[in-house]
Amino acid sequence: MNPAVSRGGRRSLWIFFALLVVFLYAPILILIVFSFNDRTFVSFPWQGFTFRWYREFVHNSALLGALRTSALVATLTSVVTVVLAIPASILLVRRRFFAKGAVSGLLLAPLVIPLVVFGIALLILFNTVGIPLSPLTVAIGHIVIALPFAILTMVPRLERISVSLEEASRDLGAGPLRTFRSITLPLLAPAVLSAFLIVFTISFDEVVVASFIAGDQPTFPLYLFSQLRLPQRLPQVIAVAVVVMTVSSIVVIASEVGRRLADRRLERVANLQQEVSAG
């Protein structure tokens, strides 16, 4: 029996969850429907079923290129951000150090800056230093705005992980790296995954900063915004969005498979924990 929830509570929570999923997916459903509508407006009435938009976007190399650029930028951003955020979060939670308040303030400060301003300022900086604009510069900017999100996702988790496990590991003679790898990181894994997800989606959808620091390879949302001048191209963009949605659903299913593998790993960690606490 689950101590967190009563039977009735469980049911209402699931109903609430279902409603929220409907709320989240209603616009997606609309997009899916209209990606087959034979008309350039996203609006009723229904004009007839067509595959035209899908056919057209497959041949639109600029659009596909933009999609690739976004995937690249988002991947790069999420990997680097998470790598930077892990040590920062751990140190913020576990250590006292000089000017800690200032450092934690700095790490969260990028949440504040208006993106237009940041985009322009960063452009001037790149220009000054002589870094040519490319997907890489977009990723550099996205890492800045995503870092606080990653840290804010990991810190609460770390606060809930007991220090004693790590101490026990050290007492048993494991070095700091080994302790990190076999104790801290597995326990932090859910937060790392969450942070990765958040950062990826933020970067994938960010347009304001990107509009200033992208060179001649636009990201997907940037391409989309510029296409707004041309209503004829809007349906294609929607078709692409539907495909992206579909692909991410496949990722969800794949992750279900991945989860089972991960579970087995976590069991191993749990066993290790027991050994540690027993020792």
């Binding site: 609309i30 997009l31 996203v42 949302p221 963009v237």
Partner: peptide
């Protein structure tokens, strides 16, 4: 974790398009 992904997945669809959909 799967359910978590279910929640986050819609956000890979561009913000602008989702706003267009809300209008519908």
């Amino acid at each position: 974790y799967t359910l978590l992904l279910v929640i986050v997945a819609p956000f890979l669809t561009s913000y602008l398009l989702r706003v267009l959909a809300w209008r519908v």
